Simulated assay, not measured.
Amino acid sequence: MAGRQQDRAAPPGRPQRRPVVALYERMVEAIRAGTYPPGSTLPTEPRLAAELGVSRPALREALILLQEDGVINVRRGVGRTVSHHPPPRGFEFLKPLEVLLGEGRQVVTVPVARTREEPTDFSTQHLVLPAGGEVRFWESVIEVGGLPACLTQEWAADETLAELLPEAAEAFDGPAARTSSMLRLLLDAGRGLPLTGSSTIVATTLGRQRGAQLGRPAETPGVLVTQVIRLDRTPLLAAKHMLPPGAPALPVWQAR
Rank of each mutant, 00 (worst) to 15 (best):
Arg17Glu: 00
Asp7Thr: 14
Pro12Lys: 08
Val28Thr: 10
Tyr36Cys: 03
Arg8Ser: 02
Leu42Met: 11
Gly34Tyr: 09
Ala30Arg: 07
Pro12Tyr: 10
Pro15Asp: 06
Arg17Phe: 01
Met27Glu: 03
Val28Gly: 03
Ala10Ser: 13
Pro12Glu: 05
Thr44Ala: 12
Leu42Glu: 07
Arg18Lys: 13
Leu23His: 00
Arg18His: 13
Tyr24Phe: 15
Ser40Cys: 07
Gly34Glu: 10
Leu23Asn: 00
Gly39Thr: 12
Ala30Leu: 12
Val21His: 08
Gln16Tyr: 06
Pro19Asp: 04
Ala22Phe: 01
Ala10Gly: 06
Val21Leu: 15
Ala22Lys: 05
Thr44Met: 08
Pro43Cys: 02
Gly13Ile: 11
Pro19Tyr: 08
Gly39Ile: 12
Val28Met: 05
Leu42Cys: 04
Thr44Asn: 10
Glu29Ser: 15
Arg14Glu: 03
Arg8Glu: 12
Pro15Phe: 01
Glu25Leu: 11
Ala22Val: 02
Leu42Ile: 14
Ile31Tyr: 01
Ala9Met: 05
Asp7His: 10
Glu25Asp: 15
Asp7Leu: 12
Glu25His: 12
Val28His: 00
Val21Phe: 06
Ala9Asn: 11
Ala10Lys: 05
Arg26Gly: 04
Glu25Met: 05
Gly13Pro: 15
Pro19Val: 08
Gln6Leu: 13
Ala33Met: 06
Ala9His: 08
Pro15Ile: 01
Arg14Val: 07
Pro38Ile: 06
Arg18Ala: 12
Thr41Ser: 08
Pro12Asn: 11
Val28Leu: 08
Pro12Ile: 12
Gln16His: 13
Glu29Gln: 13
Arg8Asn: 09
Ala9Arg: 13
Pro43Phe: 03
Ala33Val: 05
Pro15Glu: 07
Gln6Met: 09
Gln5Met: 04
Pro19Gln: 04
Ala22Trp: 01
Glu25Asn: 02
Ser40Trp: 01
Pro37Val: 10
Arg26Glu: 06
Ala10Arg: 11
Gly13Tyr: 10
Ile31Arg: 02
Tyr36Lys: 01
Val28Arg: 08
Ala10Thr: 02
Ala22Arg: 13
Glu25Gly: 03
Arg32Asp: 07
Gln16Asp: 08
Gln5Thr: 09
Gln6Asn: 05
Arg8Leu: 10
Gly13Val: 12
Pro11Met: 09
Arg17Gly: 07
Arg8Met: 05
Ser40Asn: 00
Pro38Ser: 08
Asp7Cys: 06
Thr41Ala: 08
Arg17Gln: 06
Pro38His: 10
Gln6Gly: 04
Met27Gly: 00
Gln6Val: 10
Leu23Asp: 00
Ala9Cys: 03
Arg18Asn: 15
Thr35Tyr: 04
Gly34Leu: 10
Pro15Arg: 10
Leu23Pro: 02
Pro15Ser: 07
Arg32Lys: 11
Leu23Trp: 01
Pro19His: 10
Asp7Met: 14
Val20Ala: 14
Thr41Gln: 14
Gln16Lys: 14
Val28Lys: 03
Ala9Gln: 12
Arg26Cys: 01
